[in-house]
């Protein structure tokens, strides 16, 4: 039972992971004039879950979780995330979000957090979000299933929350979209992860990159 509670604890927006600062392309999409009714919004998020979260974030997280005791191995995964993330706003966003999560866990004394933070601060590691989640969630006691579900829920709810704050959808209607996406997260989390980190989200890539040069932004990406 504690495994499920730990996953809920980490996925809870009350945990100061800093995830609220990232729209992961949603703001760029809205700024580009995309017509996003609730169904279109759901499809965009489902696409990102299927072709980015499940294929890039999740295998990186599970790899880091399994090797969390060996920070050299995690640093290798961390470098692979960097090389495989072509869209610069997602790359820098992942590092910043990782730093936020790491700072919180270092402060509460999660095993492994301070050691990983020292590596990141020294420049020996980049501290991407998925790699950092692997280290600190292992230290906090999450198992692979809990970590997958927490990460998937945070990805889905992060998009939905960004859409609410951007005025794309109302707070109540958004919950219907999120409810539909829970089935997608559950399906993807139950499937074996791909052997390599890969992603295909051209629409969000283009939106985020173009928007990154804008002067008025609510989110970091």
């Amino acid at each position: 039972m504690i495994g499920q509670l730990l996953a809920i604890w980490q996925a809870d927006a009350a945990f100061p992971s800093g995830g609220f600062a990232f729209s992961n392309g949603m703001e760029g999409l809205a700024a580009g004039g995309a017509a996003l009714d609730p169904e279109a919004l759901r499809r965009v998020i489902e696409g990102a879950l299927r072709r980015r979260w499940a294929t890039a974030d999740r295998p990186a997280l599970l790899g880091a979780l399994a090797r969390g005791h060996d920070l050299d191995a995690v640093a290798e995964i961390d470098r692979e995330i960097e090389a495989a993330t072509l869209a610069e706003p997602f790359r820098s966003g992942s590092r910043k979000n990782g730093a936020g999560l790491l700072a919180a866990h270092a402060r509460i004394g999660t095993p492994g957090a301070r050691e990983w933070q020292a590596r990141v601060r020294s420049g020996a590691a980049l501290g991407h979000l998925a790699a950092t989640q692997g280290v600190v969630w292992r230290g906090a006691g999450l198992d692979a299933q809990g970590a997958s579900l927490a990460s998937g829920y945070m990805a889905a709810s992060g998009f939905v929350t960004a859409a609410i704050r951007l005025g794309i959808i109302g707070a109540v209607a958004a919950q219907s979209v999120l409810r539909d996406l829970l089935g997608v997260v559950a399906e993807l989390a139950a499937a074996p992860p791909p052997a390599r980190i890969e992603s295909f989200s051209p629409r969000l890539d283009v939106a985020a990159i173009r928007h990154a040069r804008g002067e008025l932004r609510l989110f970091a990406n």
């Binding site: 995309a34 499809r43 696409g47 072709r51 495989a84 980190i197 295909f200």
Partner: peptide
């Protein structure tokens, strides 16, 4: 040293949706 690795797998059925309307 590996500088970048642009990797993707996309089923045809999802391709148009991931590009956006009219693409």
């Amino acid at each position: 040293e590996l500088l970048l690795a642009d990797r993707s797998t996309v089923p045809g059925a999802e391709f148009a949706e991931l590009l956006g309307p009219g693409m």
